[in-house]
Design a protein around this nucleic acid. Structure first.
Lengths: 153, 153
DNA sequence: ACAACTCAACCACATTTGTAGTAGGCTCAA
DNA sequence: TTGAGCCTACTACAAATGTGGTTGAGTTGT
């Protein structure tokens, strides 16, 4: 595994990347569709963000279908999440424990969760060999489902 | 119980708030001095941030010593941290467990930590059952900050 | 071939953040 | 009383972010 650059993602960028990670790859429109309606910016907004992500090296164009570019992530979800955690941890004085403590205090983490996690860890520790990739693209609609309408002009 | 507003703090603001929390209260200069030299902006920069924090309702002026205002936090460290966690959790799909999982995977959280946390939790849970609803004294934080009381020069 | 549509490329802009300079008011030690 | 310093209030600004419009080229069903 190569060492990636410290790509820093903003909130919106993360949102978009989330869609890309879920899709595996897709066009700007597909990526936009993947976002929950509530936080679904205009098409061009998504496009702009994708472009910025491209500049940052977080995504790249893999191919072209019709006249649309298909993008895919270059930065893994895990890597991005890792950065976020590191940042948070930094604020928390670098100790994951105080973070956990707060999670527990606020009831966001139950005793049950912890026990479960513990066994998982123990388990993982046991068979140290399994390296599970967490890429689970759920690509659905293949090409050809382009409908019309929409453009109000 | 009064509900606090969703005070949104930026990176720098958090940095400054950290100093305020540690000091308890202090003047702009004192707050600035509290910051690690590496990330110590110009006096007026800190001042500006303090002002913004004031507008946001994160700090307030409590008194005046000489001609210097003394500020104190209105938002607790815990509340602020809580918000950060919530945000992070949101990115993680709302589940603290996947967060924990990653912490574990990256070795930032050990089995030992978890066990320790577990007993702490169990303990806390026991107490809660014992004393129903009262002012639960939360003396768990082993953090050793709190130095130099907040007297202005 | 054409009209109807979709995209790509740019561009524009308002906010938010990070950073700091300036002018003038207050204080305090001489 | 006075000048050196310290502070406060403002003001300025560049970069980062969030948001979306405009134009014109590419694609497609008919």
């Amino acid at each position: 595994m190569a060492k990636e650059k410290p790509v820093k993602l903003t909130r919106l960028e993360l949102e978009i990347m989330g869609a890309v990670w879920t899709l595996g790859s897709g066009s700007v429109r597909e990526i936009r569709e993947e976002l929950p309606e509530q936080k679904r910016p205009a098409y061009t907004t998504v496009q702009t963000i994708i472009y910025r992500l491209e500049e940052k090296g977080a995504v790249r164009r893999v191919k072209k279908i019709g006249n649309a570019h298909i993008f895919e992530a270059l930065v893994t979800r895990k890597a991005a999440h890792g950065r976020l955690i590191d940042e948070l941890l930094n604020v928390f004085g670098g100790s994951p424990r105080s973070l956990m403590a707060q999670l527990v205090e606020t009831g966001q983490l139950t005793l049950h969760d912890i026990r479960e996690l513990e066994s998982t860890l123990a388990n993982l520790e046991a068979k140290k060999t399994a390296a599970t990739a967490d890429n689970s693209p759920k690509n659905k609609a293949p090409r050809g489902d382009r409908r019309r309408g929409g453009g109000a002009k």
